[in-house]
Amino acid sequence: MAVSAPQQATGQVATRNRREPKNVFQRAYRQWADYTYIMPALLAMFFVIAYPIAYTIYLSFYSTPTAGENVWNGLTNYTSIITAERFWMITQNTMYWTIVSTILAFIIGTAAALVAQREFIGRGLVRGIFLIPWVISHVATAYIWVWIFHSDYGLVSGMLMDLGIISSPLVILDSTTWAMPALILVNVWKDFPFIMIMMLAGLQTVPEHLLRAAKIDGASTWAQFRHVTLPHLKGVIIITLLLTIVMNLNHFTLPWIMTGGGPASSTHIWITEVYALAFRSLRFGIASAFSVILFIIMMSMAYFYVKAMTAGDDRRR
């Protein structure tokens, strides 16, 4: 020890005396190993993310006839999307789908979390059962529910007819009124476990001593929830809601497989519309412009998400 101590001291002095290079390139050069390590990931990101984004933006300013060269047409793609009545109809569908799905899944997921948080016999089993919808793949879920809702040989119609509640088969996925509520039902069924897990994780971090203090201070169960649990969960709630909203805005599999946007476009949402425009109608220019609009909307959601995430870091409010 006595021998190595002076050496350590000189080592520290030497480090301190090494001058920081002022030039950013010199600093980057000094950290060349770090950049080498992240280079493969950066390259992959460039080819699968940056390049497609750039190419989409490029295409969005062109008319793309199926035969022949792409033709520059400025903002025409954008204006024709925004001025079309169809865009606003689909936006309305998207809002309906996103807002109702998010609110319902949030309420049910939170309720499930509150139940799964309590101590009772068979809690583990209940938690496991609640997770089942989440672990089934979207495609499988979609086909299961298509079958359940089928008007001729579906479970819902069959059961209701057997019970004598209805006399003729219910038309669900082929009805412009009921297709969207049916999709939302499936979406909520699929997503509430995610919210349950997030809220359950949040609930488990509610400090026990605060609940105790509230009990002593005379708070009822509701007042404890209102004054201790809820403020503590604020960050988790915001992030869960944002994630769920983005997830729903981007949701493709369920609506596409179950209804393909129909009947009469009543279940078309932004993302299915973009897909249909690009790969059914082969109108890549319009589809690209549509994608760019969605990209801007999603990035603004991402801004709030990042803001909420970093807010939770240093100030626990």
């Binding site: 605060l210 105790r212 203090a213 509230a214 002593i216 409010r317």
Partner: peptide, 12 residues
């Protein structure tokens, strides 16, 4: 009334 070791003040 009770005073707790870690104060247990309502943070918000």
């Amino acid at each position: 009334a009770m005073v707790f070791q870690n104060y247990a003040l309502y943070p918000t």
